[in-house]
Design a protein around this nucleic acid. Structure first.
Length: 508
RNA sequence: GGCCCGUUCGUCUAGAUGGCCCAGGACGCUAGGUUUUCAUCCUAGAAAUCAGGGGUUCGAAUCCCCUACGGGCUACCA
């Protein structure tokens, strides 16, 4: 590449971005930064019918949250603006005219209904209709109609579209950075609409014009665009822009983990994991779809997870910061086949990043959760609790479940533990332990530990049985960190209260 | 149907120019150890006849062909 690398992420504001789109943005970003190039955000809103209010803001906000930054774009401006296709509307017609004048495109007056009935007819004969180099000769367009009639129709303001005149008997060669050499015969391609009757260009036209004008050097996009890549290459040829045509890289798709097919926005929360980076509320239905941010994922984890869905560094390193990804990223190492999202692995990634957090940082995050529950706890104590339960969670919002017994007495007792360990004499021994606690200092856990253990061994009791029952009445379940540390933290009075209540509640 | 892309453990994948691969790692799973418990942690293990079939070759996951299967596209949507 002689010139500076310039890539673009070009979503349509038809709803929230899903993680497949986020990954496309990420790969573009990594590639741009790796080469010291520019990352551009262009909004492709040429379909007025599918426009969803708030979607553009959502896209910007969620990518900002993830740390994917743009050098140019709708929200930051730049020398190649405007960056929203609806704002560039006036410039496309001239390019389309150029194509018509050079005989690369033509006016077509067939109505949508005409074509629809035609499709049905073909279907009835088990054939499929295509507006192409064969059929265009029998349809209502500037290639078949007399000149005067075309002029008249245009002058009358009859609705029309402009179609690309796909040449016959040619081969289009695409050198995809990921897939290698792909050849397609133009005879199999159809005459795509470039300009719609509503005065807007279609994706194909706007995309090529904008990429050219914005001097895009690499088009990195999803594999769903591969079938239209030949058209795009032909458009560059038609415009005479072959010399500066960007290089293409078509990314493998992100697949649904269950069954088949590519992951879509419609998959929502059906699959048990968010498909959107941040929470999204549908402006029409009010339906809320969960996001990674709200589910408690760290941005670093989401980036790391997404980076590894379709790419890997070829080493055994799995944890990568954004900067390390930029350093290691190469298009050559992107895989060709689709990837399924793995929830378990995603959790593991999050856990890895959670463990990198300091107890202080985690305590601060946890304080928010505590406050929302109306619990105020001194910071030092929370830091200590974090230290004790940090290794047991994958997400900050799992902290409460693992530590609630530090803040409130159990309301229920695990049936399994009762069944397995609670014996007839348990209450008697727990009462003795209350006495021991009463007579021991509890602001340190060692003395109490020693005294209770002595009691158990002196009476030839079963260690597991007594300890588990003691844990049961204090914690409510057979889980948690060292029991004596818990007692030390909740204090003598609270401990005795819980044991007493436990004995009464469980009995036999 | 047509066109195009793909196919290594359940999942993500390693595997430049064919031999070091009877295929490696990670997640998950199983077992054992540690622990008063659960989790963590440690150790071990199961798990892909490299989609199948033909070639080429002394030798193929790696090259070629065919088949199957999966996927994408096939709109005046992107």
């Amino acid at each position: 590449m002689d010139n500076k690398v310039r890539v673009r992420f070009a979503p349509s504001p038809t709803g929230p971005l899903h993680i497949g789109g986020v990954r496309t943005a990420l790969y573009n970003y990594l590639f741009a930064k790796k080469h010291g190039g520019s990352m551009i955000l262009r909004i492709e809103d040429t379909d007025q019918g599918r426009f969803v209010p708030g979607a553009e803001e959502y896209i910007i906000d969620s990518l900002t949250w993830l740390g994917i930054k743009f050098d140019e774009g709708v929200h930051v401006g730049g020398p190649y603006g405007p960056y929203r296709q609806s704002d560039r509307k006036s410039m496309y017609m001239a390019y389309c005219d150029e194509l018509v004048n050079s005989n690369w495109a033509y006016f077509a007056f067939d109505t949508a209904e005409d074509l629809e009935t035609l499709r049905k007819q073909y279907e009835a004969e088990k054939k499929s209709f295509q507006y192409d180099c064969i059929t265009r000769n029998n349809l209502r367009n500037s290639l078949t109609l007399p000149q005067e009639e075309v002029q008249k129709l245009l002058a009358d303001g009859s609705p029309y579209v402009i179609r690309f005149k796909m040449p016959a008997h040619e081969e289009v060669h695409i050198n995809d950075l990921i897939r290698g050499h792909v050849v397609v015969k133009t005879d199999t391609l159809d005459d795509k609409v470039l300009f719609k009757s509503d005065g807007m260009p279609t994706y194909h036209l706007a995309n090529i014009v904008d990429d050219h004008l914005m001097e895009i050097t690499h088009v990195i996009r999803g594999e769903e665009w591969l079938p239209s890549a030949p058209l795009h290459v032909m458009l560059y040829k038609a415009f005479g822009w072959e010399d500066t045509m960007p290089k293409f890289a078509h990314l493998p798709l992100l697949l649904k983990p269950d069954g088949n097919g590519k992951l879509s926005k419609r998959d929502g929360d059906r699959l048990g994991f968010p498909v959107f980076p941040t929470q999204w509320t549908d402006p029409k239905t009010g339906e809320v779809s969960s996001g990674y941010r709200e589910s408690g994922y760290y941005t670093e984890a989401v980036i790391n997870i997404l980076a590894f869905l379709g790419w890997n560094p070829g080493t055994e390193q799995e944890l990568f910061s954004m900067n390390e990804l930029i350093e290691a990223f190469t298009i050559e190492r992107i895989s060709k086949s689709g990837a399924k999202f793995d929830l378990e692995k995603a959790k593991w990634f999050n856990q890895q990043y959670l463990r990198k957090e300091s107890n202080e940082e985690l305590a601060t995050s946890f304080q928010e959760i505590l406050q929302s529950k109306g619990i105020s706890a001194e910071h030092e104590k929370v830091v200590h609790i974090i230290e004790l339960v940090k290794e047991r969670v994958n997400f900050v919002n799992e902290l409460w479940e693992q530590s609630k017994f530090f803040f409130e007495a159990p309301l229920t007792y695990d049936e399994q533990v009762i069944k397995k360990r609670w014996k007839e004499d348990t209450s008697v021994h727990l009462k003795s332990i209350i006495e021991i606690i009463n007579n021991t200092i509890t602001h340190q856990h060692e003395p109490l530990h020693d005294n209770v253990v002595s009691y158990i061994t002196d009476n030839s009791l079963n260690m597991g049985q007594i300890m588990n029952c003691l844990r049961l009445v204090i914690v409510g379940a057979g889980m948690g960190p060292d029991l004596f540390t818990i007692i030390e933290l909740i204090g003598k009075d609270e401990t005795i209260k819980r044991i007493t209540k436990g004995i009464e509640t469980i009995k036999n």
